[in-house]
């Protein structure tokens, strides 16, 4: 098995930061807000590896910094410090030292992202088919017929009715919007996919179908995924390994079943006990 992503000492601070930020925040300090300068230490010193075809879970409650991690990796936000290497076949990219054109190229060709809020992942002014076409165009597919065929195949795969290809996303249900987002993210068959709370807020039966779909796709395409969620059920069903975050720090990492059945950290024990 080969490594696809290596993240080392990733940090992200909102605000100007000061010399006391790090020592005054984190799980021990019970806050991510620096009392000296008012900066928010959203993520500090996060490291992990992801292997080809693997699904890694990032769990934690709101404000733990888990979404910030994937937003940094997908270039939605710039990391404050740290390193991330993306291994793509024979090539490797030092993500945070790329220029914005190179970052855009990776986003469009090699990465995919599905957001909790479909407004972030979809363009609501164009149709479902148009959303997928947009991503295909950005990845250099130019032929109209080919684009339309591929869009239809993707929507069929994610179980969106083909009769709705030309409808606007705002006329879709929440679950359907997530399917279109997934189809769009998968359009370029990226080897690396980020999923940020994709089933949060959907009703249970819809959630289950989306999770099923994600697992099926993972088995077919062997896509490596980073799944961010506060939902332990999602973690259990989808992931093989997981990290637990609190106030921007990784407080525990391990095999998913081990974290759920034999959590080591007091916080994880509380988290698991409150659900199971």
């Amino acid at each position: 098995m080969n490594k696809i992503l290596e993240v080392r000492n990733l940090s992200r601070i909102y605000g100007k930061g000061c010399a006391l930020c790090i020592e005054s925040t984190g799980p021990e300090a019970d806050t991510n807000l620096c009392p000296h300068c008012g900066s928010v230490v959203a993520v500090h010193d996060v490291s992990f590896d992801l292997f080809e075809g693997e699904i890694l879970g990032v769990m934690g409650e709101s404000g733990s910094g888990k979404s910030t991690v994937v937003k940094n990796l997908y270039f939605d936000q710039a990391a404050t410090s740290g390193q991330a290497i993306f291994y793509d076949a024979a090539r490797q990219y030092d993500l945070f030292s790329l220029n914005s054109a190179q970052q855009r190229w990776l986003r469009n060709h090699r990465f995919g992202m599905v957001y909790q809020n479909p407004h972030l992942g979809l363009n609501f002014n164009i149709t479902a088919g148009g959303n997928i076409a947009e991503r295909l165009l950005m990845s250099d597919l130019m032929d109209y017929g080919a684009i339309r065929d591929r869009a239809k195949t993707l929507l069929a795969r994610t179980e969106v009715l083909l009769s709705r290809v030309d409808d606007l996303p705002k006329h879709f249900s929440g679950g359907m919007q997530q399917r279109v987002q997934i189809a769009k993210a998968l359009a370029t068959q990226p080897p690396l996919l980020f999923l940020d709370e994709v089933t949060t807020g959907l009703d249970l039966s819809v959630q289950a179908r989306i999770l099923d779909l994600i697992l099926e796709i993972q088995q077919e395409l062997k896509t490596a995924m980073v799944v961010v969620t506060h939902d332990l059920g999602v973690i259990r069903l989808l992931t093989g390994r997981a990290i637990v975050m609190k106030y921007g720090r990784v407080i525990e990492s391990g095999l998913t079943d081990q974290i759920l059945e034999d959590p080591q950290h007091a916080y994880t024990q509380r988290l698991v006990a409150s659900v199971l």
């Binding site: 095999l255 059945e261 034999d262």
Partner: peptide, 9 residues
């Protein structure tokens, strides 16, 4: 059993 399978550390 769980220790061998590493569900327990």
């Amino acid at each position: 059993l769980k220790g061998i399978y590493r569900t327990y550390l």
